[in-house]
Simulated scan of single mutants.
Amino acid sequence: MNRRVVIDTDPGLDDAVAILFALASGRFDILGLTTVAGNIGLERTTSNAGGLLAVMDRSDIPVISGASTAMLRDNIDAIVIHGVDGLRGITLPPTTVTAQTGAVEWLAETLLTAPSGSIDILALGPLTNIGRLVNEHPEAAGRIGQLIAMGGAIVEPGNAGPASEFNFASDPEATAVVLRSDIKTTIVPLDVTRRVRADRAYVEALRGSLAGDTAADILTAYLLDDKQSRPLHDPCVMLLAVAPDLFDIEIHRLSINLGDGPDAGALTDSETGTPVAVAMRVDVQGALDLLSSGLR
């Protein structure tokens, strides 16, 4: 049976490709999309989530908006990469889903009414919604089967600061809450996601289906500015969920920088850190093949 999942997301170009794969591949029973401010503001991430469901005619899946601000600090964004609309001008169909509000409460109710351990969360953006769930509804959070989150950098340089990655830098406090919790968590850092890259030939080869055509349009926009290839950060979460054998997982004892400097949110291996499962290596060709097969 397909694993029951909630996708917590801030679409976003690579988020959009990850969601399209989840919708098209037939590998997931998607209970809902919960949205968070991240790459862009909450209103737009929520609208984009609904538009992606409209592309695939999946109005049966609810969209529930969540945190519009980080726990304790000002928001940052990635408009320079994703554009003011999050999709660099790619137009999605009008959403046919009326977004609900209260993602944290919806998550809690959904987890508490399902068998414990039967629902996974695939987190593609800042961990604000999940951090709030841990703080406000610890019993519900304890019922998550597993959390797979794109975020962090171990050896790789950061993309938000010298050593900090965008998702974790967006809400370091929420990240710390989640990583210190008892949730079975695996993070997929830049050390892996920067290896899985789409070039123009790969993008064009995706065409031939609704999901593939839409993903190709989105990735073509992602390849603007004369880029030869782009990293597929968020799709790696979906690929790990369905094909963990493609990844090498290590346990690292991690501490997170909660300061106010440029490396807020950065991870450090430390004897006093929290043990966290980290994807450190990936079968790049296997990952690319799986992604394309799920989109076509």
Rank of each mutant, 00 (worst) to 15 (best):
L223C: 05
I61F: 07
D217E: 12
T128F: 00
A277Q: 14
E271D: 14
I183D: 03
R58S: 06
E105M: 14
P94G: 08
L246Q: 09
T193K: 02
T95W: 07
T175L: 06
D199G: 10
P262A: 14
R195H: 15
K184W: 12
T272S: 14
G142N: 08
M71A: 10
L92V: 09
V188Q: 00
A198K: 02
A241G: 13
M56T: 06
D213R: 10
L92K: 04
S292N: 10
T175A: 05
N39I: 03
R44P: 09
V84T: 14
S255W: 09
D234P: 10
P262H: 13
L190M: 11
L52S: 08
R200H: 12
P93V: 04
A140Q: 04
V188E: 00
P157F: 06
S65N: 05
T113D: 11
E156S: 13
L232S: 01
P275T: 05
A176K: 12
F21T: 04
D226P: 14
L13C: 09
L107R: 05
G32K: 00
R230N: 13
D182P: 13
A241L: 15
I30W: 01
P162E: 15
L258P: 05
T35I: 04
L190T: 01
A108P: 08
A216S: 15
K227T: 11
V237P: 06
G51M: 00
Q146D: 10
P94S: 07
H252I: 14
F168Q: 12
R88F: 08
E139R: 13
I19G: 00
V5W: 01
G151D: 02
I256L: 12
C236F: 11
A221V: 05
G212E: 08
T128V: 01
D289E: 10
V36N: 02
T175H: 04
S118H: 13
I144A: 00
A22C: 10
V36G: 01
I61N: 02
G145A: 03
A176R: 09
A160F: 00
C236N: 09
R27Q: 08
L258D: 08
L254D: 08
I187Y: 02
E139L: 11
A277E: 10
S68M: 07
P231L: 06
G50C: 07
L210P: 15
P262Q: 14
E136L: 10
L258Y: 09
S25M: 04
A18T: 06
T193E: 04
R132D: 02
A67E: 04
T193P: 06
H233W: 10
R88Q: 12
R58C: 07
G151Q: 00
R4L: 13
R207C: 11
D289K: 11
I81W: 08
P231V: 06
L124E: 00
L31N: 03
V5Q: 01
A16D: 00
P275W: 01
P126D: 11
K184L: 15
I119W: 06
G161R: 12
A108L: 10
L295G: 09
A153D: 05
